[in-house]
């Protein structure tokens, strides 16, 4: 279960010409177990992704206007037990959830015309055994697919990757009993 995010805004430091790296690393050290860090910066802090990935953090970045960026660093261990139908949306973790089994199926649906991504993802989910996981890459938020997954009683997490163009969706097949569809 993900705890309340810790928020760190380093924009004032950056605008004053300062170097926020140590402040960020201090904040990371002080995070509680499983706690995520929401970082606000004046540019996309790409070098930080590698550094924090080694410390076990997945990232999800988005531009929030005026050239500013919001990046949520989520400890990958915290993605272990997602709530059913609690999508993390555009701030979602971009890594598969380790608490779930490794995805037994990977789909790259980015170059398919609509509604092929919807068709292929649902077909692949139906092939899974309950509890198994698949991951899929898409080129946009799958607005018609997500309610279908909920209807069929599957769990999912999804969000845009740092590039803002690839949407990564991870689905765990439900127990087989469909929600009233």
């Amino acid at each position: 279960m993900i705890q309340v995010q810790h928020e760190l805004d380093v924009r004032p430091i950056l605008r004053a010409g300062g170097e926020p790296f140590t402040v960020i690393m201090d904040a990371v050290k002080k995070l509680g177990s499983g706690q995520a860090l929401r970082l606000l910066a004046t540019f996309e802090p790409i070098p930080l992704y590698g550094v924090l990935a080694k410390k076990g953090f997945a990232h999800a970045a988005r531009e929030i206007g005026d050239g500013d960026w919001e990046v949520v660093f989520t400890p990958t261990a915290a993605l272990a037990s997602p709530q059913k139908a609690q999508p993390v949306g555009s701030t979602g973790g971009s890594a598969a959830s380790p608490g779930w089994p490794e995805p037994s199926c990977h789909l790259d649906n980015r170059d398919l015309e609509p509604p092929e991504p919807l068709v292929r993802t649902l077909a692949a989910v139906e092939e899974l055994r309950p509890g198994e996981v698949l991951s899929a890459l898409l080129c946009r938020e799958p607005v018609f697919l997500l309610p279908k997954l909920n209807e069929r009683g599957h769990e999912w997490r999804g969000g845009f990757e740092a590039d803002g163009k690839t949407y990564r969706l991870v689905v765990r097949k439900g127990a087989g009993k469909e929600a009233a569809a």
Binding site: E141, P142, V143, F144, L145, L146, P147, N150
Partner: peptide, 8 residues
Amino acid sequence: MIGASLSK
């Protein structure tokens, strides 16, 4: 809820 459904 996230997502869209059919407009009736």
